[in-house]
C-alpha cells in the first residue's frame, strides 16, 4: 500500500500534476533567499535533511523494489531542489543507490531522468548501465535539452554539432529502442526532424487524413480557405 501511495505521489509530481504546493514552496523559498540568504540556506538544510533522513529509512526498510525505488527517487527529487552541501550529498547518495540497483531498468531510469536531467546524472547512468535502451534514454535526455533551448534561441556551433550527433545515433544505432512513452526513438527523432524542417512557420502544413471521434473520415485540407487552429489535445 505504502509503495503504491509513494509511486502515485512520485509520478504525479513528475508529471507536474496535483502538485501546486511545490510552486508555493518554491516562491516562498525564493523570497526568503533574496531577503535572508543565510536563513534560507539553513532552512533548506533543515528541511532537506529531515526529509532525506526519513526517506533513507523508508528505502532501507522497503519490502519491495517499487517502494525502494520510489523512496530513493523522492530523495533525489527533494535534494535536486537545493545548492547546499546537504542537498549535494543527498543527491549523490540517492543517485548512487538508484544506479547500483536499477541501472539496467529502462522504465525506472526514464523516471530518474525526468526528475534529474543533469549532465551529472546522465554521465553516471551511462557509466553504470549495460542496457541499450537506458543508453538511448540518456542520449534523448541530452538531445531534449538542446531541443528545448532551440525554441528560445539559436544553438551555438558546438551545441548544434552535438545535437546532430545525438539525433544521428537515435535514428541509427538506437532507432529500435523505446522512449518513456513506448515509441521507437527512430520514429520520435524522424518526427522531431520533420517538425523542425517541415512544420516550421512559413511551411505549408502536411495534410492529415483521418477519422473524427464518431468515425467519419475527413481531411485537414477540407478546411482550406479558413483560418485553422490545429489543437493537439487530450482529456486527462
Amino acid at each position: 500500500m505504502l509503495s503504491k501511495l509513494f509511486l502515485g505521489w512520485v509520478s504525479a509530481a513528475a508529471l507536474g500534476l496535483g502538485f501546486d504546493g511545490a510552486a508555493d514552496v518554491a516562491r516562498i523559498r525564493e523570497e526568503l533567499r533574496k531577503k535572508q540568504p543565510d536563513a534560507a540556506a539553513r532552512a533548506d538544510d533543515a528541511l532537506t535533511g529531515g526529509w532525506l533522513e526519513t526517506l533513507w529509512q523508508t528505502a532501507a526498510q522497503a519490502q519491495d523494489d517499487d517502494a525502494r525505488f520510489a523512496a530513493l527517487l523522492l530523495a533525489m527529487q527533494v535534494s535536486e531542489f537545493g545548492t547546499t552541501q546537504v542537498c549535494k550529498e543527498g543527491r549523490g547518495k540517492a543517485r548512487d543507490e538508484l544506479l547500483a540497483r536499477f541501472a539496467d531498468d529502462p522504465k525506472r531510469m526514464g523516471e530518474l531522468l525526468r526528475v534529474s536531467s543533469t549532465a551529472e546524472t546522465r554521465e553516471a547512468m551511462l557509466a553504470r548501465t549495460a542496457h541499450k535502451g537506458v543508453k538511448a534514454l540518456c542520449l534523448w535526455s541530452e538531445a531534449a535539452g538542446y531541443l528545448s533551448t532551440m525554441r528560445r534561441e539559436k544553438l551555438g556551433e558546438e551545441a548544434q554539432k552535438r545535437l546532430d550527433v545525438l539525433m544521428g545515433l537515435l535514428r541509427g544505432e538506437y532507432k529500435d529502442e523505446l522512449d518513456s512513452r513506448g515509441r521507437r526513438f527512430g520514429d520520435v527523432v524522424e518526427g522531431r526532424l520533420r517538425a523542425m524542417n517541415d512544420l516550421a512557420v512559413g511551411k505549408v502544413a502536411p495534410d492529415i487524413e483521418g477519422k473524427d471521434l464518431d468515425g467519419a473520415p475527413f481531411k485537414l485540407s477540407d478546411y482550406r480557405g479558413k483560418i485553422v487552429v490545429l489543437d493537439f489535445w487530450g482529456h486527462w
Binding site: V204, A205, S221, R224, K226, I227, V229, L230, D231
Partner: peptide
C-alpha cells in the same frame, strides 16, 4: 500543442 494555419494551409 497548437498550430495556427492561414487560409492556404501555411503554418
Amino acid at each position: 500543442t497548437i498550430y495556427v494555419l492561414d487560409e492556404t494551409g501555411t503554418i
